[in-house]
């Protein structure tokens, strides 16, 4: 059994008077990719923010390597857990390479200058993510997808045993989605623990070892993709009807019901045309 690196126990959270999390239990192990699914507003991002210590839960415990998150200093947390946010808006024209190098901040000495090794780590990450040609371009001039790749590279160079990704592929095309998830796969194989929030059920089923479905403030289901992605779970979490097919290797494929081609469209009753 792999090492348990991050654990949520009965975590409760209220935000703006709304009860977002109502007793969430979730564990993350070294070497695995855990996909966190759920409807908009289900509390996925809140859970990631709680894990990094920037948001304190109202109740429950969050443990990092067995110790409560609150016992770590900010600098200690930054060397253990990295978060790639959904979107960040940078107000100044930093070159993309500089943004990536900022990920080395938790490892820098007092003067705050990157060593040759820090620079090499950042360059390697840009290479791996496939954004080396963006290095000198201002972050203000990059597209949403390019900015997302820069943020992912920044998360990689932080070189933490735990990596949290908040919808890392939302702005990416399919080729880049697959590329990023393969990269993350490699990190997990090398022993890192990865928690990824996603709305792409297909890719989540393909690349995650386990999935957890957040709904109504609880973890509705957690387990293998086949265990979690069932029509009844999808109906409860997203309020949709869906058929779940199987790929030849057993990976579930979610097919939402709808007015698909080849089926009689359900048109509302129309008033008869007036003469």
């Amino acid at each position: 059994m792999s090492e348990l690196v991050l654990g949520f126990e009965a975590v409760r959270l209220q935000l703006g008077g709304r009860s977002v999390l109502q007793g969430v239990d979730l564990v993350l192990f070294a070497g695995e990719i855990l996909g966190l699914l759920g409807a908009n507003g289900a509390g996925k991002t809140s859970l990631l923010r709680i894990a990094t210590g920037v948001l304190a839960p109202d109740d429950g415990a969050v443990r990092l390597f067995g110790r409560p998150v609150g016992e770590f200093s900010r600098a200690e947390l930054a060397r253990r857990i990295a978060l790639v946010p959904q979107r960040s808006e940078v107000p100044f024209p930093y070159p993309a390479a500089e943004i990536v190098r900022m990920g080395r901040a938790p490892h820098l000495g007092l003067l705050g200058f990157e060593s040759r090794e820090d620079v090499a780590i950042a360059e390697r990450a840009m290479e791996e993510v496939g954004i080396r040609e963006l290095a000198g371009r201002s972050i203000l001039e990059l597209s949403g997808g390019e900015q997302q790749l820069v943020a992912i590279a920044r998360g990689l160079v932080q070189a933490t045993p735990i990596l949290l990704l908040d919808e890392p592929t939302a702005f990416l095309d399919l080729r880049h989605r697959v590329h990023v998830l393969r990269l993350v796969r490699g990190l997990a194989r090398a022993g890192r623990a990865v928690l990824v929030v996603s709305h792409d059920l297909g890719l989540a089923a393909r690349f995650c070892d386990r999935l957890a479905l957040l709904s109504g403030g609880h973890v509705l289901a957690a387990g293998s993709p086949a265990e979690v992605l069932t029509p009844s779970h999808l109906a409860a979490a997203f309020g949709i009807e869906a058929t779940v097919l199987r790929a030849p290797d057993g990976t579930p494929i979610v097919l939402p019901e709808g007015d698909a081609r080849g089926r009689e469209p359900r048109t509302p009753e129309l008033a008869p045309p007036q003469r």
Partner: peptide, 23 residues
């Protein structure tokens, strides 16, 4: 001046700066 690198991290947003170890 000793905080200068932290000002760069602050440009990423307060939460991102916190997650990179900035108080």
């Amino acid at each position: 001046w000793p905080q200068a690198r932290r000002l760069d991290l602050l440009a990423l947003g307060e939460e991102s700066a916190a997650q990179l170890g900035v108080d």
